[in-house]
Simulated scan of single mutants.
Amino acid sequence: MIKFLDLHKLNKPFETQFLAKTKSFLDNGWYVLGEEVKQFEQSFATFSNSKHCIGVGNGLDALVLILKANIHLGNLQKGDEVLVPANTYIASVLSILQADLIPVFVEPTIETYNIDPNLIEEKITSKTKAILVVHLYGQLAEMDKINAICESNNLLIIEDAAQAHGLTFNGNHTRAFSFYPGKNLGALGDGGAITTNDDVLAEVLFSLRNYGSSSKYKNDFIGVNSRLDELQAAFLNIKLPHLNTENETRKKIAKRYLSEINNNKIDLPICNNFNNHVFHLFVIRTENRDKLQEYLNSYGIQTVIHYPIPPHKQKALQEFNHLSLPITEKIHQEVLSLPMSSVLTDEEITHVIITLNSY
């Protein structure tokens, strides 16, 4: 079986270093917000070309804390509207709701799956104060157009980069990352981070993640407990130097898929610039997705659906169930994610391609 993502194989090369770090962690006796977190925050800030990195518990917390920090600073107010792609993982929407803000869904383009800049302005009202841009599947959204729209409408831009580690970003914005094990830069458990060039915002975020505390037992805000785990930071410190190389391998695999898959029943994703994609996922579309998935499975190829139900149709978000978002709904009915990771062999990639072409 060709696994969709073989985490054991992916992490195996680092096993000796992981074990050594774990022993060092145990011997050190400092288990929360220690030197490993500080080192990772410094390294990831440099890697991301940002002044600050704030390590947090997970990607969802990263988004929520960015929004809450902007409320604390007066850049947003509870009840403000935040534009968000309709085609995204539910965490993007949950973060807006958990910050007591109102999500307004914007359809994607069918070609890239990312938010359609041409549909943004029609969604802007007097209550719209921000946009949460998602770089879905690892592809940069059309930030030149989005930046121009937001500048002319005085909208705050926040970027959900949970699937976009190593992407070269466009614009001086605050970004949220997830280090869930399956990400391009994955921990061995949950983890997340925020990057920003805003000194004041960073100061608030460092406080909010740690009970709203600026120093021990001094609490300036109603904060939360969402700190990047010291041991996970240690593992991330080991893996970060290899991220660019692994992303380049993903791009090579994507180029093979794009150039060699040839089946008129299958729609391939559009990528006009490989510098703007890190291929966290390689997502195809087909009208009878379940049939194709069963077919691939019968040939030993594991696939995953990202995502079967759009956020606005989830039971948890019943207040949005009435919305009709046909492009998003079509995407969620047709998408299928092919195996994609830096440990796939040439033989495995060839098998996937031949099998798809024979469908």
Rank of each mutant, 00 (worst) to 15 (best):
D6P: 12
K12M: 14
Q17P: 06
L33N: 15
E35W: 00
K38M: 06
A45M: 11
A45N: 09
K51S: 13
G55M: 11
G55T: 01
L76G: 09
E81V: 07
E81S: 07
E81P: 09
T88N: 12
A91Y: 07
S92N: 14
I96T: 02
L97F: 01
L97G: 01
D100Q: 13
E111Q: 13
T112H: 07
P117I: 01
E121H: 03
E122R: 11
T125I: 10
T125K: 10
Q139L: 12
E142W: 00
I146K: 12
E151M: 08
I157Y: 05
N172L: 11
S178E: 02
F179L: 02
P181R: 04
P181D: 01
G182E: 13
G182H: 12
G186F: 06
G186K: 08
G192Q: 06
V204E: 07
L205S: 07
F206H: 13
F206W: 05
R209E: 04
R209L: 09
S213C: 09
S214K: 10
N225R: 07
P241S: 06
L243W: 05
L243S: 10
S259L: 06
I261F: 06
V278N: 11
D290M: 11
D290W: 01
E294R: 12
I305Q: 15
P311N: 06
E329F: 05
Q333I: 00
Q333M: 10
L336N: 05
S337Y: 01
V343F: 09
T345A: 08
V352A: 12
N357F: 08
Y359V: 09
